[in-house]
Nucleic acid binder design. Sequence first.
RNA 1: GGGCGCGUAGUCUAGUGGUUAUGACGUCACCCUGACACGGUGAAGGUCGCCAGUUCGAAUCUGGCCGCGCCCA
Length: 902
Amino acid sequence: MLPRRPSREPLMPKEIPPRFDPAEVEARWQRAWAEAGYFRAPADPKGAAFTIVLPPPNVTGVLTLGHMLGDTVQDVLARWHRMRGDAVLWLPGLDHAGLATQVAVRRHLAKERIRLEELPRVEVLSAIGRWKEEREATIRAQTEAGGFSVDWSRYRYTMDEASVRATREAFVRLFDAGLIYRGERIVNWDPRLRTAISNLEVVHREEEATLLYLEYPWADGSPGGIVVATVRPETIFGDVAVAVHPDDERHRAALGRTVRVPLTDRVVPVIADAAIDRAFGNGALKVTPAHDVLDHEIAVRHPELPVPPSILDEEARLAGDLVPAAFRGLDREKGRAAVTDALESAGFVRRKEAYRHSVARSERSDDVIEPRLSTQWFVRLPDLAPPVVEAVRSGAIRLHPDRWERTFFRWMEGLEDWCISRQVVWGHPIPVHYCESCGATIASVDAPQTCPKCHGARFRPDPDVLDTWFTSWMWPFATMGWPERTGDLARYYPTSVLVTGRDIMFFWVARMMMAGFRFTGERPFSHVFFTGMLRDDTGRKMSKHLGNSPEPLDLIRERGADALRFALLYPNPVDQDGPFTAATLEGGRNFLTKLWNLGRLLLSHVPEGAAAPAVAPALREGSALESRWILARWRETTRALDAALESFEFTQAATLLLQFVWHDLADRYVEMAKDALKGERGERARTEAREVLLFVFERTLRELHPFVPHVTEELWHALPHEGEALAVARWPSPAEAPDDPVALAQMEILWDGIRTLRNLRAESGVPATELPAGTIRATLAESEAILGDQAALLTRLGRVARLDPWSEPSPGWDPRARAVTPYAEYRLVIEAASPEAAEGLAREREKLSGILERTRHRLADEGFRSRAPAQVVAEAEEKVRELTERIRRIDGGAEPATSGVP
RNA sequence: GGGCGCGUAGUCUAGUGGUUAUGACGUCACCCUGACACGGUGAAGGUCGCCAGUUCGAAUCUGGCCGCGCCCA
């Protein structure tokens, strides 16, 4: 890096330092906003209500960059609506994340060589309690550091008292309606965590295994038997049959016969069932009803078959009377090896082959799921689905981006009952008691006093707890006091937008919809916005597991919350998976520095006691073109910005603002208005330039505020302003500035000239410090007028000493420094241009004649002339005219290349 | 195995029937110009994955193929 140049005495007032120091500024505004209570949702809202419930982060960990992305999107929405005058409630909270938290704490304890399973329940709870306190404090600090405008006065926790009541109430209502039942089913059993889990918590992975072909000998002692293929030989002790497809010719003769289960004395029948896949193995399946879903279904269809108890215990070790003593106590791996050995030495194995298949594992423990017949609680989800499907279909609830609707419908249509009971400590206990006298099942919000059936008074509570999602699915209304009819519920429910990652679309979003309609009769939200996933610089998804997700607080400390927020929204689309790298964050920081310096420049030109820009400056006849233009551009930008925000296009919104601030306001307007600002165009021009710049910058600060609240608040207070804080300032309207298509069109012509002269200078090799003279010839009436009027800007920004009327080169004047645009021709008066000047012109000619060629070709096509809309044909004809003319000019000016060149 | 999505300069990306294909990062050249070198100015860089089809006309629509990703079983 270059050494800092020797500092000149700055013109800036001392109050605004040359660099934005986020650490100090951000903390200061966060405090100020909190003290002013701007983010507390009013109890008596005047305007329309706008509600977001923050997806409660899990106490499992602390906030990741992904959370910051979601929070930023929500804050943009919340602040935008607040500025538009809506009564905004953004409700924060925390999720107890039952099983996930227990696993995290279990792992944490394991580091100290403590087994969670061996601790008394109360100690487990207090260990989890301590864990929660720590994480909660960090999460809160992270949220505050991000500058997120949540209403902390309404903070909720899925384990607080009100949540406990709401959870129990919901359970009892569904139970009473017959939508919750207890039953014996094959469930996904996690042997390491010793609990059932739901289908959604199971992940499937392709893994290598060995497929064994086992011969089950005929029970009558006749030679041979039936060959069954299996990857789980250790489960043969639970077999009750061998099944084949009823139409399978190969096994027709076997039907009705009996076989002996290898290594046992048990005799089982060969049965027919249409569910058998004839293509798999030999087409014969061993039926083990306690350890496989399909096998259980087969057993249900064949009531004559016994359903023996499980031959694996809850940690998936071989157990029970059916298992030969030699194998008892072995886990699945060892059991499989031992049983395989025994089968091989006893001669039952006909064949072994390597086999790749999909293995179900627990999302939480990564242990292989054991399908296990057990008694659990279930919610009849299919019965809750119809209003949800209808709402999404009708548009009452809209998903953004809407392509996710298909995925959503597919899942909704294939719903299965939801297993909600978990055999763990950390969670809401299932609100069910069993009467000790008559065995009645009593679901009640408060513990029962007497049994409604037999009036007994002694009860045994259900030992299980609820899946954490059984509480989370009520988040939009339980947080507002449901089942009580609270004021918040009346005012702020249904909520407006839910912002979340699509990884929990089924876990949470769909279930919230079901709960919303079931318990409140209304949609819980009208829009769902799914954010994308962040990837690191090597393209991997950021995850805690990979350890490639930077700690948000570190990034905030390094570059500031505003830089982080902006970088999360720009340039990579928030609704797509995309990279987030150090360069992304620097880009955000650079933009804020640009904004900051624009503010410093403006401040240096604002006189003491200048008024806040209440309305746009009225421009008159004779106002500067750039002033008319920037107001019109601001209007266009504001209109597009509103449209982008309305349609959840946050990256588009951020892009519009960045383009406007950097390229329109800083690069063009400020550069053009500089001499006016310095007073070189007179007092009137100076005042107008100040007023225009102040107005546009102030309105732009408002528009940027939802995205980068701290830096905008700081700048706003440094400049003339009216009102308490930008956080509660009014959102601008495009109508504040006049529409001015003439100014927009004229600026095109002027800018074309400036760009052309700059390009000519560079290509001709004019040293940066020299200002050559130039000549100009406008080729259209409109460009003649505008380029004449704006000659001062054209020469200053085009970096030429002066522009004379067109003249042909004379000796000592290199003719190659020449350019032709749609509006004018330009020459630089220089002795020797570098060859690139001529090359540039030649390249331009080549490109133009290519386009001309193609356009002529199109026009020559009868089909085009007769079928294309008249306007398209006319445009093509105009293009041919314009290009022909331009090429003619390029050629016409082509003096002998050597003329005048030494 | 099923479903969904995506392939546009080195990288990321805009663009849903007629544009001289957008912007950013990176690269190269010049420049510390009275806001900003976290900056300015200029430039180079693309057969819009491949093949068919529809159409007067395809980056854009349809089909197939190839590659990548995600979800589900």
